[in-house]
Design a protein around this nucleic acid. Structure first.
Lengths: 164, 164
DNA sequence: CTTCCTGCAAAGGGTTTGCACGCCT
DNA sequence: AGGCGTGCAAACCCTTTGCAGGAAG
């Protein structure tokens, strides 16, 4: 897949669906923020700069469409909002997420070790594993500094809702 | 911790809080369903049979309290509802969850391999990992049977919301 | 009597849906 | 024409919150 946009256009065409201007705008927003994990609202705000008449419902419908199409992944870190990232199925390995309980920042990391876990599970339970979600909660390097020395863990109780 | 109820009572007392009849009811419901992962609504309905005047808000407040106390774990599988299970912190190893995309059933399994992942992450990123959530999505043995042979994966698109 | 706790009802916030109109084939 | 797709606003649903009354130390 050299051009993600054309790739998505074709995947849509296979189902007699079109990459409309609105959908393309949403897609471009995601591509332009490949390093982050945007909420629907954030996508909406950004997309609006480029296509002012676009509606939030369309953003939701588009993200949902892309997710079902397998080109976007939905990430639910238990914050009460879903986050989205461009990530076509089968495009290399899974990546997992590190979520800072203090500032909410989300980092990614690659790890293949999970394959072993999955296979063990399949063997032991008969479950057929199709996908997974691994979230690690903790404190990013920055947020470890401030109050670093007292026994009180700065576990912000309300936000980021902690481990899901 | 031989008696979970007394354990919780003491934990609460440490913070000048009480194990009220309502809270005890909620706790008992959780204990009586240790094998499942109830939603707040389900806890509420069950608890109501035992204490009809109990309100849903109290159930939410209690579950939240227990979660902050570390005796209950909140599980968010991206369904749009949170699920809760009695699971005191430090009571043995983590357990993870297997979620059937077809019937929504949630199985648990134990795995320690994640410690290695966590330590690798801490070393490589400087993140301090405090907790984690591992969800495996797939098909339980039962749901593999029905349409087992056609290429069509019975990936129920709407429910269980798929991988989070 | 002061603090903790509850029930009720209302508010809140993210997401979905109904509907009428527009667009592309 | 016949779908597909969109915008708007309303509807939904889970969860939280404000408030006034109650119970416990």
């Amino acid at each position: 897949m050299s051009d993600p946009i054309e790739y998505v256009r074709e995947r849509l065409a296979q189902q007699d669906q079109r990459l409309t201007p609105q959908r393309e705008t949403v897609l471009r927003v995601l591509l332009d923020h490949a390093d982050t994990h945007l909420t629907a609202e954030e996508v909406y705000l950004e997309a609006r700069n480029r296509a002012p008449e676009l509606g939030l419902a369309t953003v939701y419908r588009t993200l949902d469409l892309f997710a079902r199409l397998g080109v976007v992944r939905r990430l639910d870190a238990g914050e009460g909002v879903a986050r989205y990232e461009f990530h076509p199925e089968g495009a290399g390995h899974y990546h997992h997420h590190l979520i800072c309980l203090e500032c909410g920042q989300i980092l990614e990391f690659e790890q293949d070790l999970l394959d072993r876990v999955e296979r063990a599970v399949e063997r032991e339970t008969g479950f057929r594993v199709v996908d997974h979600s691994l979230l690690l909660f903790g404190l990013c390097p920055n947020c470890q500094k401030p109050s670093d020395g007292d026994g009180d863990r700065p576990r912000s109780d309300r936000e980021a809702s902690g481990p899901a």
